[in-house]
């Protein structure tokens, strides 16, 4: 291909232009339904959520748009400690994400590199099998297992790890544990996929160039799985920070999170503007964290990640 020079001025015929138009229009026709659906039922609600946060009023008389930006300031200074819930949710989400990476990486590594091809699918399926049971039931089962009468608690009391009447429930540990449990597969899968793409000869090349097992792992395997880890983080962090279920089933008063606060603001106190402000803030903070992470770690194509 050459750089631009002048083309002869022979205008394309009308039929050529019509054909070019037909070919140009096709992608729009194909994506119009999806664009419309996403635009109308996803993007517009998201933007209108921002607008709702700027309204004032009450559940009885309704809400009017007054561009009331002070609702955001009230989140930090008002009587309800929303900032505390937010910080708590971020802490839970970040810890849960860190634990899933630590636990999921060896599992993915084992399936990708230490197992013969015919067993890979089966071993991966065993990790994915949790998806066959409703998320609510799984979390509820932990509630029963860890509760006062639950078998796990009774064994631990018997072993004097726990005192009588003491349980793991209602602690940050149980909430984070529930998050790790529920989102574990979301981390294993992308890391595994990234590892599968690594050419095994690269490991041999690293060994050939005098890299020992640790060198090979940290200088070849880990950098090449970066995109998988990023998509895992994306999925797990976003899911856990906003999640109201683990904290309400496995937690207590001391583990109240932003997800629960949003639910309550909508359904119990019906402060729609506060609820909308909370979700907008949550979205913004998550966006900033992920953007910074992508910048610092440097990811290739963001669309490759999902």
């Amino acid at each position: 291909m050459t750089s631009a020079t002048t083309l002869p001025e022979a205008a394309p015929t009308r039929r050529v232009r019509l054909e070019a138009l037909r070919r140009g229009v096709t992608p729009y026709l194909l994506s119009i339904a999806g664009f419309g659906w996403l635009g109308f039922f996803f993007v517009i609600p998201l933007v209108s959520g921002l607008l709702v946060s700027l309204m004032t009023g009450n559940p009885d008389q309704g809400y009017v748009l007054t561009w009331n930006w002070s609702v955001y300031a009230d989140l930090f200074t008002g009587p309800t400690p929303y900032w505390l819930y937010l910080v708590r949710s971020l802490t839970y989400g970040l810890s849960a994400t860190a634990f899933t990476i630590i636990l999921a990486f060896p599992v993915a590594y084992f399936i990708a590199f230490r197992v013969s091809a015919r067993w890979k699918t089966t071993l991966l399926a065993l990790v994915m099998v949790t998806f066959f049971v409703s998320f609510i039931i799984r979390t509820d089962m932990w509630f029963y297992l860890l509760g006062g009468n639950g078998p796990i608690t009774r064994v631990l009391v018997h072993l004097h790890v726990l005192d009588h009447g003491q349980t793991f429930l209602s602690t940050p540990g149980s909430v984070i544990g529930g998050m790790v449990y529920n989102d574990f597969a979301f981390m294993v899968l992308p890391i595994y996929v990234a590892m599968e793409r690594i050419d095994p000869r690269l490991h041999e090349a690293s060994n050939d160039l005098f890299g020992n097992r640790a060198n090979t792992f940290f200088r070849v395997t880990v950098p090449l799985t970066r995109s998988g880890v990023f998509s895992g983080i994306l999925l797990v962090l976003i899911d856990t920070v906003g999640d109201p279920v683990n904290s309400s089933i496995l937690g207590g008063k001391e583990t109240y999170t932003i997800g629960q606060a949003i639910q309550n603001a909508y359904f119990t106190t019906q402060q729609y503007n506060v609820a909308a402000a909370l979700s907008t803030l949550l979205m913004a903070i998550l966006g900033i964290i992920l953007f910074l992470y992508a910048r610092v770690v440097g990811t290739e194509n963001i669309e490759d990640l999902i």
């Binding site: 039922f41 609600p45 639910q263 729609y272």
Partner: peptide, 14 residues
């Protein structure tokens, strides 16, 4: 990548 809680609540508001 939008959190479920945000998707759900903004759909409700809408």
């Amino acid at each position: 990548s939008a959190p479920s809680i945000v998707v759900g609540s903004s759909a409700l508001a809408f």
